[in-house]
Design a protein around this nucleic acid. Structure first.
Length: 576
RNA sequence: CGGGGCGUAGCGCAGCCUGGUAGCGCACCUGCCUUGGGCGCAGGGGGUCGGCGGUUCAAAUCCGCCCGCCCCGACCA
């Protein structure tokens, strides 16, 4: 393509709304425009990137036997009511009514639709397994869209679903996806890691997230560089650091602690460490109060709490509820001599002695509380893993970092097949529910991750495999006939070789062309300028910012060598 | 939903406090000039000042309501 005929509206200054690198650069380099909160238009450059990612995904999904569908985004309410998700999805689902007042929604995922297809069409175990996928727009009424393309209300997802006759089959389908995902992210040039993920309340027996380390991400990853343990912090368990208690077992002692509400204040006032305190947090679960205890230096992890409680119906208690059940305000709460309130404690408190906690009386605390003696909690893993905690596998300190989720694979199990009656007959002629898996990839997340990973001060640096163009020919002077001739010749030869190439033929100053080429992030630039008088052009590598002068006739060969011989290829390998 | 901020030309902003018929930079158009890192000179076009209502002789400016967007928090199959 000729640049002069292509819509690439680059900006010298980005709209002030852009916070993160990827958002800022996508806007400034002319890839996207915002239409509303969390709604973006993808301009030709972005569309090209998306298409290349799509192609990689298709190839890898097809390789594991996936079959591509295209499903509706507009769904009748009935199927969502059938699965129970019409209620569960709550405010997150876009809902609408048609002219006859029928309820409809915009699809968030497509378990329901695929399940209706398979339940009506497949009767026998002989027709399984199946892996079905699609690349489709998804809708989510995010409470707070943000960070450009990272958290939006309409986005592209490759979602696939596996249908097996048994759990071993599911394991195989899941493993296939795992492999496919590794290939996809590797080919897209991402440095990714696969981490254990929170299964959530949707049921299911296992799930992994594929994430890319980035400050722009919203996930927290607990990672052990020694043994490779990696998990989402929603799920990650680590050992709490060791604490030594005083040897003797003392009797509970009420102490007056006027105005001392926080862990830090008590440390000061009583001259103790946070690790010798118990933090009391109150939740209302299914309408009843629950006291959650963690060590003073720890935080409650609500995803783990959800598992411990076995319900999604919980929330932090309101101040008046706390007063009602405890007779004191937050800051003076504790488990001792508490009745009518269920007590959950984190494992880190098991076996501890002589701890400090609130007395359920304002301005008073108890010293010398011993879990298991002075009160009897149920123990669970309830605390957030923290950077520096000993790894639960190898004991070496873990690190915690931010990352963005680019994919998620999930063993669903029987949830949809049972609720939506998707059964087949097995060899014995018995009616059995399909065992399902679901697997997602966020296309825009790949775009953002690549930008966040590799961008520099001059703009985007694309991995070769997903760049909108492989190479740009920057003709320094568009009025120079000799330069035009050389550029045209290189252009057609490059195109013939199968490369995606754009020829910057604009009547602009060279500086403008170089800045734009850098900004939009094309991996290679061939500069056709004065040096053609000596039979030379230059090849500039965007990522390394290095320049090579080559004979015009050798340009294609040199470029092809630099690119590793062929077009679709990632520039880096996975981190894990 | 709670807290904060913003809305003036395509983009970035000033003007608002103290009311008087809207401005700067970039971009854009024309001409000249120039062509190796966002040139130079000259001329020019473009804005119902987010919307509605109120106060006033007069509103971008003051007041009220609404809408939109951004950030923090809550939330996030």
């Amino acid at each position: 393509m000729k640049w002069s005929e292509t819509f690439i509206p680059t900006l010298r200054e980005a709209p002030s709304d852009a916070e993160f690198t990827s958002h800022h650069l996508l806007l400034r380099a002319g890839y996207i425009r915002q239409l509303g909160a969390g709604i973006y238009s993808y301009l030709p450059l972005a569309q090209r990137v998306i298409q290349r990612i799509t192609r990689i995904i298709r190839e890898e999904m097809d390789r594991i036997g996936g079959q591509e569908f295209y499903l509706p985004a507009l769904h009748p309410a009935e199927i969502w009511k059938e699965s129970g998700r019409w209620e569960i999805m709550g405010e997150n689902m876009f809902r609408l009514r048609d002219r006859y007042q029928r309820d409809l929604c915009l699809g968030m995922t497509h378990e329901e639709v695929f399940t209706t297809i398979i339940r009506d069409a497949v009767r026998s175990y002989k027709e399984l397994p199946q892996i079905w996928y699609q690349i489709q727009v998804k809708f989510r009424d995010e409470p707070r869209p943000k960070s450009g393309l990272l958290r939006v209300r309409q986005f592209l997802m490759k979602d696939s679903y596996s249908f097996d006759v048994d759990w071993n089959g599911l394991d195989r389908s899941y493993q296939k996806h795992h492999q496919a995902y590794c290939s996809i992210f590797e080919r897209c040039g991402l440095k990714y890691i696969a981490i254990q993920a929170h299964s959530g309340a949707m049921g299911g027996t296992g799930s992994e997230e594929f994430v890319v380390r980035s400050e722009a991400g919203e996930d927290l990853v607990v990672f052990c560089s020694t043994c490779g343990y990696a998990a989402n912090r929603e799920k990650a368990s680590t050992r709490a650091s060791r604490v030594v208690d005083t040897a003797q077992d003392l009797e509970p002692e009420l102490v007056h602690t006027p105005g001392q509400k926080t862990i830090a204040q008590l440390c000061e006032f009583l001259r103790i460490e946070p690790t010798h305190q118990m933090k009391s947090v109150v939740y209302m679960a299914d309408g009843k109060p629950v006291l959650v205890l963690v060590r003073g230096d720890c935080e409650v992890n609500e995803a783990k709490l959800e598992s411990a409680l076995g319900t999604q119906e919980f929330r932090p208690a309101h101040p008046d509820e706390i007063r009602q059940f405890f007779g004191a305000d937050p800051g003076s709460l504790g488990p001792y001599q508490l009745s009518g309130v269920k007590i959950l404690a984190d494992h880190s408190l098991r076996g501890r002695k002589n701890l400090v906690s609130g007395a359920n009386r304002d301005d008073y605390h108890y010293k010398n509380l011993t879990p298991g003696e002075d009160f009897r909690p149920e123990y669970f893993d309830l605390r957030n893993a923290e950077s520096g905690d000993p790894c639960s596998l190898c004991g070496k300190p873990v690190e915690v970092f931010r990352a963005m989720e680019v994919g998620h694979i999930f063993k669903l199990g029987l949830k949809y097949s049972e609720s939506m009656s998707a059964y087949v007959l097995n060899e014995a002629g018995r009616r059995i529910p399909l065992v399902m898996g679901s697997y997602g990839i966020g296309l825009e997340r790949i775009v953002c991750a690549a930008i966040e990973l590799y961008a520099d001060n001059d703009g985007i640096v694309w991995p070769q495999s997903i760049a909108p163009f492989d190479v740009v020919i920057s003709q320094v002077n568009s009025n120079d006939e000799e330069q035009t001739r050389v550029s045209a010749d290189l252009y057609s030869k490059l195109k013939d070789s199968g490369a995606e190439v754009i020829w910057d033929d604009r009547n602009e100053r060279p500086g403008v062309k170089f800045k734009d080429a850098d900004l939009i992030g094309i991996p290679y630039r061939i500069t056709v300028g004065n040096k053609i008088k000596h039979g030379k052009v230059e090849i500039f590598q965007r990522a390394q910012r290095t320049q090579h002068e080559v004979e015009i006739g050798a340009a294609l060969v040199t470029l092809s060598e630099m690119r590793g011989g062929h077009g679709i290829r990632s520039s880096s390998s996975p981190q894990s």
